[in-house]
Amino acid sequence: MASISSSRDASQNEEPPEEPIPSPSHLDGIAYLYGHPLLNSLSPPLHQTIYNALGLRWSQFPLSRVYATSKTYPPPYTISPPVQKFVRHIRDAPKFVGSSVTMPWKVKVMEHLDDLTEEARQIGACNTIFLRHDQKTNRRLLVGTNTDCIGIREAVFQNTSSKDIFKGKPGLIFGGGGTARAAIYAMRKWLGCSKIYIVNRDKSEIEAILREDRQRPASNLRNVKIIPVYDLVDLAGLEEYPAIIVSAIPNLPPRSADEIRARRILEGFLTSESKGAFLEMCYHPRPWTELATLASRFGWNVILGSEALIWQGVEQAKLWTGTDIVEVPGLIQQIKNLVERAIEERVAPKVNL
């Protein structure tokens, strides 16, 4: 660890000079992608495709900039504006139409907004800010919601034979972060799962999800229990196996003892006689991950994370533009083509001429 610390550039320890948040005058509407790092995000081109199709002079700007690249670890080092400055700007900017929010601000930004939707409250994270007009005060309000759960829902519904095939059957979450929380909400709210198993390398992350869930007001959603599976031997005692699995971890091989333990538990579920849908939420650098390959080999219907990316973005655009993007002829296919091309370009081998 000492070698890592010593290799860091001194500028990384200094407060970088703040830069103005972009607000070009030639545009009618300005959206943002707030968070960091954003070097590989497909959000701006996805939304630009929508704006162009609707004839809008709008653009989405990523608010993440590289401020130190030499001798930094991990390179490059990026930063986004402080949350107070960002919220103050979008509150006062007349052309602001909405914002995507990513790490590390998904939780912190919520306390600075005027209102939250049920999705944001239940999931405990905000990935989208949209505007709502308050007729009583004649003010525009900043409202936080979470469209990740919509992305999960639509990715599943659009790639399975029926919306009812998961009702009354267990689901499984592999992971313990924000995406796992969105998947839990989707399984409870729309997929109709009877119970939700959760497997993760870090038991404390599972415990945090369970603790947050207990603190929420009683509701029909909470009647669907979250059941942690900590060890491979626990599988033998399960009465039912999942009909749907959502994987919400990076595409990295397991290395630590806890990662290997969690992978073996997942493999135990995959090799069970019960088969269903496997949604692989990771799509970087390529959607067809090691886990997607494994699930397919064992007979699961693999749904790629790029599908969830598309549908959560479509829901964001619907909130911002007031247009049902699905109803625009050919637009969904344009978006899918864009995402497919972008991913192919990322994984294409580099040729030195």
Rank of each mutant, 00 (worst) to 15 (best):
E19P: 05
P22E: 11
P22R: 11
P22D: 13
S23R: 12
S25V: 11
H26R: 05
H26N: 10
L27V: 04
G29Y: 04
G29K: 09
G29M: 05
A31P: 05
Y32R: 04
Y32V: 05
Y32Q: 00
Y34L: 03
G35L: 04
G35S: 04
G35F: 00
P37R: 02
P37T: 03
P37F: 01
S41T: 15
S43M: 09
S43L: 06
S43Y: 03
P44E: 00
P45S: 09
L46G: 02
L46D: 03
L46S: 09
Q48N: 10
T49W: 02
T49H: 04
T49S: 07
Y51Q: 06
L54I: 06
L54A: 11
G55D: 07
L56G: 04
L56E: 10
R57T: 06
R57W: 01
R57G: 05
R57L: 09
W58Q: 12
Q60W: 01
F61M: 05
P62R: 07
L63W: 00
V66P: 01
Y67P: 02
A68H: 07
A68R: 06
A68D: 10
T69D: 14
S70P: 03
K71Q: 14
K71M: 08
T72Q: 07
T72A: 02
P74T: 14
P75I: 05
Y77G: 06
T78R: 15
T78P: 08
I79T: 14
P81R: 13
P82E: 14
V83W: 00
V83E: 08
Q84M: 12
Q84T: 15
K85G: 15
K85A: 15
K85T: 15
F86K: 09
F86S: 00
V87E: 07
V87K: 01
R88E: 15
R88G: 15
R88L: 09
H89F: 14
H89C: 11
I90F: 06
I90A: 08
I90C: 07
R91A: 10
D92W: 12
P94F: 09
K95D: 08
K95Y: 05
K95R: 11
K95A: 12
F96H: 12
V97L: 04
V97K: 02
V97C: 10
G98N: 03
S99I: 06
V101T: 06
T102G: 11
T102R: 09
W105V: 11
W105K: 12
K106W: 04
V107R: 14
K108C: 13
K108S: 13
V109A: 09
E111T: 15
E111M: 15
E111S: 15
L113N: 09
D114H: 10
L116W: 05
T117W: 05
E118G: 08
E119V: 03
E119Y: 15
E119Q: 14
E119I: 00
A120C: 04
A120R: 01
A120I: 07
R121L: 12
